[in-house]
């Protein structure tokens, strides 16, 4: 009954992780076919990789290609494995680590519903203007704003809306593309 006190071992050897984790944005070009998203997401869950954000849509209809933008948090060693494991999937064409490759643009869109009246309503509008948020729906006691930008900008706008009557938020996830004339 004291088995847990006995010196037991394991059939496996576990090493302590020594590398720092980093946040990277990967752009994955894939055949747009049934099950491709499940294949990519399944790989992440099966191998224990963490997804921060995931965006997917068809980008080249003629060639039936989709672009998946995925933000991952991992150590440099794991990041290389993620890229290689993704490339191993049959329908995956290319994987680019936009963060590692240098200059890239990252944008996200959010729809944000804020309810309120009186002074707070005026304050909400002033802040929205400062963030260049568009009003896409309005009623006497609410607004829906559309705001585009880097995720950090959206984060701060949401934080400012919190005390002013934030109701709900929906975000698209990250879309990212490299700078300069080169394509993927």
């Amino acid at each position: 009954m004291n088995a847990h006190l006995q010196p037991t071992g394991s059939a496996y050897f576990l090493t302590k992780e020594t590398q720092e984790i980093e946040r990277h944005t990967l752009s994955v070009l894939v055949d747009n076919e049934p099950g491709i998203l499940a294949r990519v997401v399944g790989l992440f869950s099966a191998r224990g990789y963490n997804i921060e954000s995931l965006t997917v849509s068809e980008t080249e209809h003629g060639r039936r290609l989709s672009r998946i933008t995925v933000v991952v948090i991992a150590t440099p060693k794991t990041l290389i494995q993620i890229k290689l494991q993704l490339e191993r999937l049959v329908p995956v064409h290319k994987v680019h680590d936009l963060t590692a490759e240098g200059a890239s643009l990252e944008r996200e869109l959010a729809l944000i519903k804020v309810a309120g009246s009186g002074d707070s309503r005026a304050e909400t509008l002033r802040l929205a203007d400062a963030f260049r948020a568009q009003i896409v729906d309005a009623s006497v006691e609410s607004f829906v704003f559309e705001v585009t930008g880097k995720p950090a900008k959206i984060d701060s706008f949401i934080a400012l809306m919190q005390p002013l009557g934030l109701v709900e938020v929906v975000r698209t996830g990250l879309a990212a593309i490299s700078r300069g004339p080169q394509g993927m």
């Binding site: 049934p34 099950g35 499940a38 790989l43 099966a46 049959v90």
Partner: peptide
């Protein structure tokens, strides 16, 4: 195809 996705190199429906 869902069940065998992670235990095949590739699968088709």
């Amino acid at each position: 195809v869902g069940i065998t996705r992670s235990c095949t190199k590739y699968n088709y429906l």
